[in-house]
Design a protein around this nucleic acid. Structure first.
Lengths: 343, 343
DNA sequence: CTGAAAGCGCTTACAG
DNA sequence: CTGAAAGCGCTTACAG
């Protein structure tokens, strides 16, 4: 900028005016500055400008995801990016990998770069490490997982209702022995889904059987093993609720491998490509990823724009998509369900 | 930092020394500064530090992807992030969406934030807009798609060899009418795959039939329609090479819908989850995404560290994974292949 | 309409 | 071992 000012024979302030399209510069000078800038390949430096500017905005936001490469995280990333781009804001994303330390390190690294706001899919049981930054004015929106300590904005899927509907669906098809497959019990969404599973059993007056609940499944292979163990047990389930993406993949794979896919009912959670082509198609509880991402991004930018109203908690509903695997009838089927069985 | 200096009764420079772990500060002062920093919730400002620092590094790199939400792009993102994290560097990613203007805008937006380097999966036919920035010293590595004008570092899949192997595989199974389904002809990878397809036909002395080539397919639905049209034509193909991810999904879906999945051979490109459970499993050409990402990230950081050796071009091979759909034999099968047919 | 001075939060290049 | 001065590239808050 100094060089441009020198070459065009004006002050640095006038160059700043031209670059920032501020009004009130004579056409003559504007032109001279423009030409000098082009000749010198002048590139504005946003980090310097944000350092001095009154609002201190860097035009960047942070996005902490479970893992940028998973379908759920990357779809959220896409939505947030689209909203941010509309405002000329750039997204710095990071993978937390269910590691609270990494979450903290990434957040600090983003704050050191002065992001204007942060969207967090938290791994940790405790988000209090964010409170200092929040107090100093950086807006933070929690996504997918509720913060345990901080009273803050959050956008969450209605996990317990989604899980409850899935299990109600299985019960309505005559199942009384429904297994639950879940991710780490420490992840709030996993806990909520287990809660919904329990609610559905209670409603149907089905006694809970701890032997049918498998948690802590961290990969599709672990989920597949769990299915194998459950089905070869003394009192096997007749239906399975796989409460997460990778877990569903493992369950599908195990059922196919054992040749039980037409025999054991299955409802999964989260979308999977191509499952409509499997035999049977896989019935899934779908999250509204676009809805979550849009709500979170809009909320964050409202806060960045200065909205100081009390923290909001947005709950996004799920949808059950029936494709066959969840409609396999169980031993308790009767009435309408028995009819379906013969169709 | 000024406040910390005031509170601890030392100069700003001494605070800087403590914060940056520079040696040569007395334990007494170190301690006083530490306590003052904690009391004031001091957060270092990396953007200010990089503005003044001699090397000017911001500890951030840019990553231009086709679309952060696609499996290919997001897997690359993950690898690049992992390498960057090891150096305390943050990744700013953006989706180009096959739009050259958007690519340019994103790149400029990253440069304005003074990224230390850039990895680009380019959409445009012309990357000359990057030459100014390159000349001014910002390392740029092209990934997945070769730059047309700029002589620069690049890490690419061996697309034509991958496609050639796929088609050779189909020809070896007795097919002489092999259809090619491809993305936009303007995308270099799509063009290279078409080239490999042509090479394989030439090798086998099979005349090319333009009626078997469908390009510009931008979605799985478009690919599915193309398959429908091809199969209902006068001289339908007996095998299909689907040269891209979404295109493969569309082809699989169309074959299943038409009940032709056991009849028409198919080899796809790029990985798809769960395809091993389909009947038949889908034979795929796999790219080594981790290999591409690692090579690109390492190359970029070498350049950032000052390596000025001539530009490198890294070619990463593909792997053909046979799962059934590509081994359906065609009318020209004989010998070993005929045996396979009856097995 | 234009510009000189001060300063954002930090590091450099010194001097002591 | 410690600090005062200058300056990174820019914007603010003025004065003319």
């Amino acid at each position: 900028m100094r060089d441009v000012a020198a070459l065009s024979g004006v002050s640095i302030k006038t160059v700043s005016r031209v670059v920032n399209l501020e009004p009130g510069v004579s056409p003559d000078l504007t032109d001279r500055v423009r030409r000098a800038a082009e000749q010198l390949d002048y590139q504005p430096n946003l980090t310097a400008s944000s350092l001095r500017r009154r609002d201190g905005k860097t035009g960047s936001i942070g996005l902490l995801l479970e893992n940028v490469a998973t379908p759920f995280s990357s779809a959220l990333h896409r939505i947030v990016e689209a909203i941010a781009r509309g405002r000329g804001v750039v997204v710095i994303a990071g993978s937390v990998d269910e590691d609270p330390q990494r979450e903290r390190d990434l957040a600090m690294s983003f704050f050191a770069r002065r992001v204007d706001g942060l969207i967090v899919m938290s791994a940790g049981p405790d988000q209090s490490y964010l409170s200092t930054e929040r107090r100093s004015g950086t807006p933070i929106v929690f996504i997918d997982r509720a913060p345990t300590l901080l009273a803050a904005d959050s956008v969450l899927t209605d996990n317990s209702a989604g899980a409850r509907h899935a299990v109600e669906h299985l019960v309505a098809h005559g199942h009384r022995r429904v297994a639950f497959l879940g991710d780490l019990a420490t992840i709030s969404t996993a806990a909520e889904r287990l809660h919904g599973y329990g609610q559905a059993l209670d409603e149907a007056a089905i006694a809970r059987d701890p032997g049918l609940v498998r948690q802590g499944l961290r990969s599709s292979d672990e989920a597949a093993s769990a299915v194998g163990a459950l089905l070869s047990g003394a009192e096997p389930p007749t239906a399975i609720f796989a409460s997460q993406n990778l877990v569903t993949i493992g369950a599908v794979r195990a059922l196919h491998r054992l040749g039980r896919q037409h025999d054991v009912a299955l409802v999964g959670f989260d979308n999977l490509p191509l499952v409509d082509l499997l035999d049977p198609g896989v019935t899934l509880v779908l999250q509204d990823i676009a809805g979550i991402g849009l709500a979170a991004a809009h909320l964050l930018f409202r806060r960045i724009d200065g909205d100081l109203t009390p923290a909001e908690k947005v709950i996004i509903p799920t949808t059950l998509v029936t494709r066959g695997s969840g409609e396999i009838v169980g031993p308790g089927a009767s009435g309408v369900n028995a009819l379906r069985r013969s169709s």
